[in-house]
Design a protein around this nucleic acid. Structure first.
Lengths: 223, 223, 223, 223
DNA sequence: AATGAATGAGGGTTCATTCAT
DNA sequence: CATGAATGAACCCTCATTCAT
């Protein structure tokens, strides 16, 4: 609107600069995600990332101080994306507790989440989490919120008819099964892909909550 | 005049050498396992491994050609150890199909298998499996045998009363849950340790096979 | 409004960079030449070269990809220098065929060419040429031009009075004698140095072309 | 003759041992020659040599103290072989001075001497002679004898009719031409092989001594 | 005497980071 | 602010030598 001011108004300038900065940071994070997913954490160099982001290698230090900081930013972005996904889905799931749980679990197998490359990145970080506790620190908060929500969703269901587990255990088993199913994308040789994994995840719910089985396996919403 | 002696001498020599070689290879594999479990795949150097094995760095190239070959040997050793564990356990499990399945699953949480360090190594390899397909190749055979056995064990049970899954799906869900539960050792913040994970794994079995629940959760044999 | 300026700025920048690059490459080549001439091809390390060039060791990989590529660049530089020398000399030699030939041969014993260190580098490469054909590939083009020119110069002379050789044979003998005389600088123990070698080379011309002997041995221009 | 004594008589024993030792040393020298001729000095490892000699790597240290000592032994062997060749040839050359000189020069192009691989070894050593003076030390004695003999042979001829060089210069030119002609085997691209090189070398003699040209180029004895 | 397993110093190369432009 | 040239530490690997067998 006032292009003439842009160069002189510090507020407008800093705003534009901030936006540019954010955009470039996102470019780098996205590029790093691609590289890690393709080359692995070990073989991803700053040159690789910069090349894919079509930026200079030095920019990584400029924006993230170090390669390691960029990597944690990637992990944070992944965590945020997952959380944003289920936060966005739950309201649309309505009031039925079973449907809500199913919606939550379906997020693991959403086409935006459950990609071989992205899953590879998750496992790349998990594979280093013992050696680099900072990766765990990044996830801890997200995990806690995730677990609490999953537990709450489980608590709203009727556990009778099967193993009759407490909500906490059920939640842990569900999350574990989902993570384990992701692994199929990386190591599996029997061709299990996203849709089949989703079916299995829903079966997990049905096994834990047989009384709600019908709602879990109904295919009204797809994955 | 005693050719049998002469030849046995030379044989004994080569035998001793072979044994020594095998012993030293094992030392290196063991040391590498420790290093990977502690430092991660990225930060494990040949110097680290050699130092822990109290050998010279050059020995790694001598025995395994390259660091990468040593790493795949580590993965192979892990895979073999796990297979050996369940192969050893099953015969002692008797004829009851449920007890057999429980014994199989318990292997995941055996004290020799389910160590934080060892699980970290598993995930370290899984985290690189997309970038380095050789890791997958190493596991493929073991995985196949594992999956077939688990499926067979599931097929011997009565699936009714819960989700009534086919053996293949149930097997996949069980394995996934176990892998996912391992992840708790690496990222979990709520103090789940080996015994609790085993309980959850048995609960998984109970959920899938409610008719056999009593046998899964009976604690007669411990983990 | 002055696009020519804008583009010239960017051009100037890239020009400066290119010039800097060329200058640094030359530094490395020069340093490598010194090292090879002193330490030999076997014992010249990238550290040696970098130290002499007052640069970092990594720069060698940066500019030449590998030590071996730097070495071939050294050989190419040597070849170019020699060719440039005789190309510069011939025009000044006038029209007399004998004087022209003498000028050409004198290049072998020019003070800028016929240095013990430089000759050592030539022989270092020749000594590896069977094991590393790339060294031969580097020289092949220069050699061909050299041989053709020498043959042409010989062809312009009167071969009668001595062995009456065809131009091709004479050219080959002349070049061989020059190369062989260089070897004196490396292995000779009887103190033959550059000026004496030049005299011998001229004697070679006189022997092959006795009719022009006077012009070969006249010392009007020195060496 | 007295096999029973062999084991007890120290003299006989040491004799057999010495012979064995000499034989094995020769094996190593021969193998080293082959390796240097094929791989070059830089890339010839003790493993390579030992493998070709079908001996253990440690034997090189045992017999020659170090790889470098083995290499100098190779050079000494080469030098000795060449000297032995012309020493054997001269007596058969008769009394004619020109024939004697021709015989001497022909040695350079004898089929046992003028092999591409062997010439490559010569140049490999010459290429390192500045960096490793011990190579020069090895040759010095042989060179001196060679030069003296060549000079003597030249001195017996009539230099008139061409360049009329003194014997010393002529000798130096002849040796240089021969060495330079050898280089053709390594770098030449115009297919000059041993026979053609010999013809050129004889032409060199004819050029220096036109009065004896007929005897140099007569092909009665072949090369 | 002969072997070849073991060593470890030293090599070339890679790459995260810095900083002048 | 963005670049990428320059650095040099650290990596893996090679290989001459040693020495127990």
């Amino acid at each position: 609107m006032q292009p003439s001011l842009t160069s002189s108004t510090s507020l407008a300038t800093s705003d534009a600069r901030l936006q540019r900065r954010v955009r470039r940071e996102e470019q780098l994070i996205e590029a790093a995600l691609e590289c890690i997913g393709t080359l692995g954490l070990r073989d991803t160099t700053v040159q690789d990332v910069a090349a894919r982001a079509e930026m200079a290698a030095g920019s990584i230090s400029q924006y993230f101080d170090s390669k390691e900081h960029l990597f944690t930013a990637v992990l944070r972005t992944l965590s945020e994306e997952f959380e944003a996904t289920w936060r966005a889905r739950l309201p649309a799931a309505g009031d039925d507790a079973a449907i809500r749980l199913r919606s939550f679990v379906d997020c693991y197998f959403d086409s935006s989440i459950c990609q071989r490359k992205k899953v590879a990145v998750w496992f790349a970080f998990w594979g280093e989490v013992k050696a680099r506790p900072q990766y765990r620190d990044v996830c801890a908060g997200y995990d806690q919120v995730h677990d609490r929500m999953l537990e709450e969703l489980c608590g709203a269901l009727d556990p009778e008819g099967g193993a009759a587990l407490d909500a906490r255990s059920a939640a842990k088993l569900i999350a574990s099964a989902c993570h384990g199913l992701w692994l199929e994308l990386l190591t599996g040789t029997d061709g299990l892909r996203r849709p089949q994994l989703a079916v299995l995840a829903r079966a997990q719910l049905a096994a834990l909550y047989p009384r709600h089985a019908a709602q879990f396996t109904a295919n009204e919403h797809g994955v």
